[in-house]
């Protein structure tokens, strides 16, 4: 039995001559919140559509809960709930009717509709026409529609798009609750790293159809090694001194020297050493390349 909710093996997908997804090997562990990151047009939505079998993948490249998707389409789709791009909602029906219609299609009890409306905070707007909903309400209804079948795997394509800060926090908390309390696996795509950083346990970074990074959020953070930045007088002399003392100089400017960070104790020792040898230190601080920059680096280097 596979430990992955989603596994793609060297997935390739073209629209005509244009390669949209190239040799993509996603591994989404069960129970994780997998942040699927990439700039606009990187191939995120296409990948999600492939995972829903809306776009047909080559055989033996996409596995959902260990089963090949093309030969197990219906059984697989029963375990997935999805929100792709803008939520697909019938504008002439109310929010509740949209949910009831989905209940009919899925063959589940219509009472589920009220439960879902309460879950996403739309009970008061249940009987309002969905076309009159605000963007945020539509997004929440879209999430409710994805959740109504109580799926094990949720695919959410940019679920916080168009939401105000409160809405973003609500969706974020909902995702965390679903993963921790209800043990659901969530693949959430976004072009904003800050968004993913707050919720995801695992991250995959895609650019121009290729996977640039895949791992846990901690592994991603490890990629950005922390540094110690020292603002010191007589900078050239200080560099020579530190080199003689066995320190590695990562970079220097006219005002500052940067050395790799190992521990707070070591940073203290370094400070003492410089002062004891007559240098004047005006500042010493630990620096971390923030993930935003790292993300830009990863996606630019391609």
């Amino acid at each position: 039995m596979s430990n992955y909710a989603i596994e793609t093996v060297g997935l390739n997908f073209n629209f005509g001559n244009q390669a949209i997804v190239k040799d993509l090997s996603l591994k989404v562990p069960k129970g994780s919140i997998y942040g699927f990151l990439g700039p606009n047009g990187a191939g995120k939505t296409t990948t999600i559509k492939i995972l829903l079998n809306l776009l047909k993948s080559p055989a033996d490249q996409v596995f959902i809960f260990g089963k090949e998707i093309n030969s197990n389409r219906i059984a697989t789709l029963k375990r997935i709930g999805a929100l792709v791009e803008q939520p697909a909602i019938y504008g002439h029906l109310s929010g509740k009717e949209n949910l009831i219609n989905r209940c009919i299609l899925l063959g589940i009890k219509k009472t589920k509709a009220d439960e879902m409306l309460a879950l996403v905070g739309l009970t008061d707007a249940a009987n309002k026409k969905a076309s009159k909903y605000s963007l945020g309400m539509k997004q929440r209804l879209g999430i409710a529609l994805a959740l109504v079948s109580d799926p094990e795997l949720l695919l959410l394509d940019e679920p916080t798009n168009g939401l105000d800060p409160n809405g973003i926090i609500e969706v974020r908390n909902l995702m965390i609750e679903l993963a921790t309390k209800h043990h659901k696996t969530i693949l959430v795509s976004s072009h904003l790293l800050a968004e993913i950083e707050r919720t995801a346990t695992h991250v995959g970074i895609i650019n121009k159809g290729q996977l640039m990074f895949q791992g846990t959020i901690d592994e991603l953070q490890l990629l950005s090694k922390p540094m110690v930045e020292i603002e010191v007088d007589e900078i050239e002399k200080a560099i020579d001194f530190l080199k003689a003392a066995g320190y590695e100089i990562a970079s220097k400017t006219d005002l500052k020297i940067t050395v790799p960070f190992s521990s707070s104790v070591d940073s203290g020792k370094l400070n003492t050493l410089l002062i004891q040898n007559g240098f004047t230190i005006s500042s010493l601080s630990k620096q971390r390349k923030d993930l935003e920059n790292l993300f830009l680096d990863i996606t630019k280097n391609n």
Binding site: K49, L52, N53, L54, I74, A75, T76, L77, K78, I80, A82, V84, E85, Q86, A88, I89, Y90, G91, L105, L106, L145
Partner: peptide, 18 residues
């Protein structure tokens, strides 16, 4: 048209139905 207008083809075909 009910599906074209609401852009619901994708959701309809993502349901576990033949």
């Amino acid at each position: 048209n009910i599906e074209h207008k609401n852009d619901t083809w994708k959701t309809l075909f993502a349901q576990p139905l033949n």
